[in-house]
């Protein structure tokens, strides 16, 4: 790609000071990669490999020990980034509408305008009837849709998604994947999507990056060869899909086993 990378990650390293008695923990072991503007990159890896840490660094929620990350701000009218959290992270004290309009409110958008935008995204997610409901009245899948609507309404240049569908049942997950694909096709945002599901990574991503067990490094990169717009269900019957699934799994399996061995070693 000739375009300037949207995100530059250069030897990003994060070391946590160790808990009492234990040595420091290297969560991220020097990761380097670029993400192009409008690209949807998925990151998979064994649990505890630092994929979430990488995302939190990009979201400014975590400090780098070494290296640097840069997100190019190419549109001063739009916020640079927003994060969709594992388990939605929507505020229980706000209605669906207030939650969806939250980012816009922080940007100082007048109420009438932000409510209009929020309403549109609430409709887009099929939640019209629940605009004035509180999160406690919604199912897990609906709460996650509110989280998505909040991020989309905010309209950032880069969307950081941390296993947003991880806790949902398979059907809801499929529906939300479809929703994400549709929205992404419509207004190609740069997306970094962390997941533990290879299928999900293949379904959504232009590229799938595989991370090693801790300390997390990028060890492999796959390009998902499927044309867009994609259909999450039709993809499953594509022979290339299962071939790639096997290929990624063969790389990932070693890392998962290493991660497990390390865990067992730590407890022994």
């Amino acid at each position: 790609m000739s375009r300037l990378p949207k995100i530059t990650i250069d030897h990003a390293r994060v070391v946590y000071p160790g808990a009492r008695g234990a040595g420091p923990v290297e969560a991220l072991g020097g990761v380097s990669c670029n993400v192009a503007d409008g690209e949807l990159v998925c990151i998979v890896g064994p649990s505890g490999c630092g994929k979430t840490t990488l995302l939190r660094v990009l979201a400014d929620l975590e400090q780098l020990t070494d290296g640097r990350v840069v997100i190019t701000d190419s549109d001063p009218a739009r916020p640079v980034k927003a994060m969709v959290f594992q388990g939605a992270g929507i505020f229980p004290w706000m209605t669906v509408e207030q939650n969806v309009a939250y980012g816009l409110r922080l940007r100082g958008m007048p109420p009438a305008e932000r409510i209009e935008i929020a309403r549109r995204w609430i409709g887009e997610m099929g939640l019209d009837r629940f605009a004035n409901a509180y999160p406690a009245q919604l199912s897990g899948g609906m709460q996650q849709r509110v989280g998505l609507a909040r991020a989309f309404a905010y309209n950032p240049q880069v969307l950081l998604m941390d296993e947003p569908f991880g806790a949902l049942d398979a059907q809801t997950r499929l529906i939300l994947q479809q929703t994400l694909l549709r929205q992404w096709d419509r207004e190609a945002k740069t997306v970094v999507f962390v997941t533990h599901s290879i299928e999900e990574a293949l379904t959504l991503g232009d590229r799938v990056l595989v991370m090693s067990a801790r300390p997390g490094r990028l060890i492999h990169e796959f390009r998902a060869p499927f044309a867009r717009p994609r259909d999450a269900i039709a993809l499953r019957s594509d022979p290339r899909f299962s071939a790639m699934f096997a290929e990624i799994w063969s790389v990932l399996r070693d890392e998962v086993e290493r991660a497990r061995a390390a865990e067992l070693g730590a407890t022994a």
Partner: peptide, 8 residues
Amino acid sequence: EVAQSFGA
């Protein structure tokens, strides 16, 4: 953190 990620 959620609030911070939206620039609070």
